[in-house]
Design a protein around this nucleic acid. Sequence first.
DNA 1: CTGTTAGCGCCTTCAA
DNA 2: TTGAAGGCGCTAACAG
Lengths: 353, 353
Amino acid sequence: MSSQHSRPTSRDVAKAAGVSQSTVSLVLGGKWPGRVSPATAAAVHQAAERLGYRPNRAARSLRLGSTRTVMLVVPTLTATFFGAVYEGAARAAARHGFGVVAYPWPDDAGPADSPFAAAHEAIDGILASSLAEDVLSGFAGVPVVMLDSDPSAEAPTVVFDVQDAMRAIVAHLAGLGHRRFGHVATSIDQWTFHARGRALADAVADVPGATLVREDAALDVAAAKDAAARLLGGPDRPTALVCDDDVMAAGAYKAARARGLEIPRDLSVTGFDDVLLAAALEPELTTVRLPAGELGAAGMDALLRLLEGGRPGSLSLPGELVVRGSTGPAPEAPAPATKAVSTVATGQGRKKA
Amino acid sequence: MSSQHSRPTSRDVAKAAGVSQSTVSLVLGGKWPGRVSPATAAAVHQAAERLGYRPNRAARSLRLGSTRTVMLVVPTLTATFFGAVYEGAARAAARHGFGVVAYPWPDDAGPADSPFAAAHEAIDGILASSLAEDVLSGFAGVPVVMLDSDPSAEAPTVVFDVQDAMRAIVAHLAGLGHRRFGHVATSIDQWTFHARGRALADAVADVPGATLVREDAALDVAAAKDAAARLLGGPDRPTALVCDDDVMAAGAYKAARARGLEIPRDLSVTGFDDVLLAAALEPELTTVRLPAGELGAAGMDALLRLLEGGRPGSLSLPGELVVRGSTGPAPEAPAPATKAVSTVATGQGRKKA
DNA sequence: CTGTTAGCGCCTTCAA
DNA sequence: TTGAAGGCGCTAACAG
């Protein structure tokens, strides 16, 4: 026995199969046809199998100069969304023999360390989600694909079609007769939230006679509650609150309840994300489901293509409006309107009852 | 220029500093004092800095036979809990120059692949959270620390003090006058849930005159709602529902509402975990906060000690009871009791109003 | 105190 | 069709 008790090497396999190392490499690398006899190849495969041989990654990396590892940079892993992104990315990577290491980098922490504290410098490429492009300034030269961030960036991107999703929300609400919209917005400086704000404004502008007021807050329940309370306390109280995120919708629920408003009778509320929370709330939340896993997978596919020398294009994934119990017909005369709201039915509006 | 445009090697640094490679290795490895002159050491450091030198991980791994990488196996990353475990573990690992790769392995998927599809076989140790020990059967020989799982296992473990947490919950509830408890349990076959069930039964048994009924359900809102409904529909309706998880508590809320019961006036509800959900519910949930990040960090510390040849002991982390709005005094005469509930005040009960 | 040397396991010429 | 040899970048013996 040449191998003491540790993992077998290609040498061991060669010895066992009665061939040379290079033959083993050829066969196991799958490029033997036409260069190695089928019989020899079979013998090699068999020996490798029997010995439980697995190539040493470090040695392979050293020789090849590539690590077959991709780093996923996300603001946090403590959010189901990014966990799903990771799982989607890892699945796609595994199909190509790549591994993924997660690197949580809070968005308010400035540019990420280039010389990693975590010793993760051995990387072939970077997948960055929901981060500003300049966060990656320390990684010049490393192939990058950006997820859920400004598609006008240089790197290939994969994003959600936020505009379409917001249009769907507004169409749904407008169809229920709503005209006075409130936007419970998050103040986080991320592309997706800027995009949501813009998309909502655009969509509302397309509804004749519709108005939109906006309040910003941090992305947590308490802050969102305050923002929603401000909206609800203002003149011309909105009949529908469009929230930037399911978490903020939970805050909106609380503000509504504090004001004695019943959802959806007196107020409609929508979210964005469709995480666990949406189904846990009462009534269940009408929201847009964002396919986080697919985002990760599509991003990884693009990155892998990039690593192979290709030039992947940018991509946009559709969200899906999930209508649940938090939206309903606009209340008839919700408040003594000070401004006349001359609503022109656009034809797509369909009121129930 | 010897280096074309790629990363500088220790050779380049040596050349730049006018010394040999081994000196560079010694200096940068921090074991030069007494072997290299301070002046030379300074020169090396400076050259390395100027060139932006970073050691090649693959080469180092190959030489050292260790990868300075640990694998964290978790049931899923799509849960804030495991995301927090990861972050805690990664932080602790980084302090020692270790990296962490996450490996989501659903608990119902049987023993994990030993020869990883994801090519993650290059690993020094394994941290496994909330998994049965036999899931790791394919990794014989690799140092392992188990998190949140049966402490009677062979491997060192880090767990939460479930028993203490449950006692705190029951004490809190009993202090409010509750004697009829319902357990909304999860049917998931994990150590922690078995432990919760046992701990709850024990704690209730210690309250004179107290009773406990139990219903099992999958770990999701809808299933928990059904289970809670069964509990609430049975004879001698419980006045307090102890749920195995915050998610299940959300289901309990729904069941209560469906039955016209108001929380906490007619029914008290408690959770377990204190994730985002607890503060999003209305009223906010009384629950036990489980320090997931600390679990990961403590586990990683233990694993690192194990890798250094030590024999870390097992550890138990305390949870913290967080009292919020979902628990209140037991209703006076909640239902025409068929059994007499002879309540003996234990002296620690303190009713408001 | 510093330099030389060897070899970790793999893949890829090059020669047979 | 197969084997021998070299070297990826690093570290640890061993010389000097």
